[in-house]
Write a protein that binds this DNA or RNA. Sequence first.
RNA 1: GGCGGCGUAGCUCAGUUGGUUAGAGCAGCGGAAUCAUAAUCCGAAGGUCGUAAGUUCAAGUCUUACCGCCGCUACCA
Length: 681
Amino acid sequence: MNRKILVTSALPYSNGLIHIGHLAGAYLPADIYVRYQRMAGNDVVFICGADEHGVPITIAAMKQGKTPQELVDYYYKINRDSFEKIGIKFDNFSRTSLPLHHKTSQEFFLALHEKGKLKVKEIKQLYCPEDKMYLADRYVNGICPKCGAEDARGDQCEKCGSWLDPLSLKKPKCAICGAEPIVKTTKHWYLPMADFQPDLEKWLKQKNWKDNVMNYCNGWFKEGLRDRAITRDLDWGVPVPLPDAEGKVMYVWFDAPIGYISATKEWAEKIGQPDLWKDYWQNPDCELIHFIGKDNIVFHAIFWPATLMEVGGYNLPTQIPANEFLNLEGNKLSTSKNYAVWLPDYLEKFSPDILRYALAANLPENKDTDFSWKQFQKCNNNELADILGNFINRTLTFVNKYCDGTIPPAESLSELDKNVLNEIAKLAAEAGELINSFKIRAATAKVMDIARAANRYFDAAQPWKTRKNDFETCQTTLNVCCRIIRTLAICFNPFIPFSSDKIWTMMGFEGNSTDGHWDDAAKEIDPAGTKLGKTEIIFKKIDDEELQPEIDRLEKIVADMEQENAVPEGIALLPQITFDEFGKTDLRVAEILTAEAVPKTKKLLKLSLKLGTEKKQVVAGIAEFYKPEELPGKKVILVANLAPAKLRGIESQGMILAANSPTGLVLVTVEKDVPTGSKVS
RNA sequence: GGCGGCGUAGCUCAGUUGGUUAGAGCAGCGGAAUCAUAAUCCGAAGGUCGUAAGUUCAAGUCUUACCGCCGCUACCA
């Protein structure tokens, strides 16, 4: 009996392009899985769409002088196009700005409201009178109440790392226009997650999901779930369908996953069976599989199931194969720094299948993995071209040269022939099972093993010899090789669909490579008599010169980032002081006489300083950067009238100045020799 | 601070419930072959599995501490 499976990939947020990290996390594994399941004869619907609401989109639009709709229209088209070109074949790539989605989301909201599942709370929030909007935490800047840094964001101060309440910021400013926001009281609807926790825990406990997903969830449960606001004061989003909710929309994380449902509805409408979506969402026999990146786990494994559970009548996720992150050339991807490989750029230069294969072979299934252009090149040159491509090429060259371009017959199969056919049948079945259990990386290696086995067979059978002394055996060998190529085309289809189809056509087979069912991939279908199509090299080698610009571009960004970090960013200055205020600081040149480490500390050195005729004892936190023995004799600048303090029980009678460089502290010293005790001003 | 993860051959990564000489691919080394996109195939070599203890007849696999990296979390500072 065939399975019915609804597969979703995380909805990409429509304020940017798709990059390899997105692909590796949620899209490519899903696409491979879907293609396999279809070939295995299962009924699969593959759903995705653009997530088009939320504050970042309104802000990005404002900055670009566009309306939010114009912005999401732009990214919708370009991302939909990217997916298509890379071969991610959704049944429907919808968008959350559609009326159908608004309607569906509102139905969800109302259902929760009417069942009395939602809480209403009044809170105080900052409001920008210029932009006429409530400011989300990260869109407020101000002075950090904890450390006094100037550029603290409403949610967190990057200087001292404290998490902040935006209302506690001193001198708050709107991050968009710079105006001073005012405090207003507003009302929001909340999902009382604590109430839902027991049911959720019970449900999740029976799941046998990947460790990373379970660990995340258990962490959240342990902390105890908290109420979560699902509304926002914004004019961009799904309006809250209640009379007393004027100007409020749903929080983007509430409406986005509902997008899976509205996208399925849209799909059903498009194919002319508007009720068919129910068969995938309300039929308990249908499996629901969400492919996501690890950043989405909490939403898909906790908030979303809770919503579905409380609304009732919908299937809950069967499986959430969340992937870890993909790094790039050893560094984290950064969209803001443009440190990524963007799909539209990639597609201009290379063919989609190479990236698909290179990523599939190195998916971050268990932990973060690294993508490098060198690895990409190796995947293409050493595997796709040398192992797979070359096997096909060496076989077809024979068929073309000595068999008139027609696949020759196999009179009788030898042990060698039978063994290799058995072997590839076994490998094909194993690869399928691996995909079915979401081990796509291992599956990738497995299908390449089919090509390795094929090359081994070719070498053992030595058709270049049998051609001369035993043409019938030679023909049999080639016949077997062509069967293997058919298997290869089928088994590689989920990974490199474009090339698979190319191989299929080249072999002169009818239809395309998905027509062969996976279970029949290695069946003894004798292709003898088939006239080959036009043969060509399928995977060309990529040389270093083609990759160098890509590598250079990324290296430059890394270098720039390092430089940026080197200069204190933004040079946010402390509040102005007067000359008189400065005059209170008594800075003096002093010479270090002795220095010794303070026991049981990492950073502290006890220094004794000569200041004219006086001596001062200072404890300085420079031990990580200076050894005691290299200090005596150095002339440094001392804040001489600083109130004494005790550090680790040792009195410190001042402090010496040092510059904070990215590589550590550097002592400030005098440019020419001067007597100790000289005043610095 | 708390929680979680990671640290395995030169590189990228596997290692299922603890069980025999720790795996794969790539690079490097040796060889075979010459049909093919100088591609293929075979072989050997390569690791005190982050460090240090512990549990066990037996630990990469469990426990504890520590080091390094990462993530989440928190109305310490």
